[in-house]
Simulated scan of single mutants.
Amino acid sequence: MNRIAQGIVLVLLGAAALSCTLASDLYLNYVQAAFRPFLAAAGVLLVALGVIAIAVDLRAAGPAAADAAEEPDHSGHGADSHGHGHRAPGVAWLLLLPVVAVFVVSPPALGAYTAAGAATAPPRDSAAALDDLDEDWGDPSEPREMELQEFVMRAWTDQERTLAGRTVRLTGFVVPNPEGEGWYLARLQMACCAADAIVNRVLITDQPEPPKDSWWQVDGTWVEPEGDIQDIRDHRFSVAEMAEVENPPDPYE
């Protein structure tokens, strides 16, 4: 593969990064929203480097071709007659296929398969960083929309159990329970990128299991456990109403 081909690869990679960040929200399947400007800058840099590499090689190829035409070949052998040319094998062009595949096949966000094997978010020592539910609840007759991350943290750490009896609205995707009892409503939480994702989930046993990886909005209440709340592996959620929703643009919390 010559330098022009290498420049084309750089341009395609840069274009893929720009299309995922500027033309769509596809990048949210892999990294947090805060990384958007860095990915866009990297895409611009790759495109610029690729264009420069192509331009430099084309400019150098012009005089070289002219000199070669003026000098006769007295040896009677072409440049590649003995395999001493500088071109890589034609099979090297197959390296372009993964780059082109970025434009054709877009890997989806992590889902039920990952959540089934991912680490469960560990409980924290205290709920001091959480808002006071009594002050921040709003209309008590309406369910409060809450991230699964916040709900799980409160269920695990709030020793006063202020969640008890309150109607909460959660949104997540369906994960089958490998142990057979009920199913999980889950959401993945990542600190940097999809590679470090951990799962927040609640166990639902009072509703039929929907299709795996489908997204649902559920209204219901925390099933208050007996004993120490931090000893509970999976907190249960009793569903009053549930409705299927479209996949959110940002699937992570």
Rank of each mutant, 00 (worst) to 15 (best):
Asp250Gln: 15
Leu49Arg: 01
Pro140Leu: 04
Ala40Asn: 11
Asp234Ile: 02
Gly76Thr: 09
Ala60Ile: 07
His74Ile: 01
Ala186Phe: 08
Pro63Phe: 04
Ala23Arg: 14
Asp134Asn: 15
Arg59Gly: 15
Ala101Met: 12
Leu28Val: 12
Cys192Tyr: 04
Thr221Asp: 01
Glu71Leu: 11
Ala68Asn: 08
Leu133Ser: 07
Tyr113Glu: 02
Ala118Asp: 05
His77Asn: 11
Tyr252Trp: 03
Leu58Thr: 08
Pro140Ser: 03
Leu130Pro: 02
Val218Gln: 04
Ala42Trp: 03
Leu203Thr: 00
Ala5Gly: 02
Leu110Pro: 05
Ser106Leu: 02
Gly220Asn: 00
Ala191His: 13
Phe173Thr: 12
Thr171Asn: 02
Arg233Cys: 09
Asp213Ala: 07
Thr205Tyr: 11
Thr221Ser: 05
Glu253Phe: 11
Glu145Met: 10
Arg233Asn: 13
Leu188Asp: 08
Ala88Cys: 08
Gly165Gln: 09
Leu130His: 05
Glu179Tyr: 07
Ser106Pro: 00
Glu147Lys: 12
Ala48Lys: 05
Ala240Arg: 11
Leu130Asn: 06
Tyr27Met: 06
Pro89Asn: 01
Glu142His: 13
Thr114Met: 08
His86Cys: 01
Ala53Pro: 08
Gly172Gln: 04
Ala197Leu: 01
Ser75Ile: 01
Trp222Glu: 08
Ala88Lys: 03
Trp216Asp: 05
Gln189Asn: 14
Asn200Tyr: 00
Val152His: 05
Ala79Asp: 13
Ala66Arg: 06
Gln230Leu: 06
Tyr184Met: 03
Glu145Gln: 05
Asp136Glu: 10
Gly43Ile: 09
Ala61Cys: 09
Asp213Met: 03
Ala128Tyr: 03
Pro37Met: 06
Pro249Glu: 15
Glu246Thr: 10
Glu181Met: 07
Thr167Ser: 08
Ile229Arg: 01
Val245Phe: 12
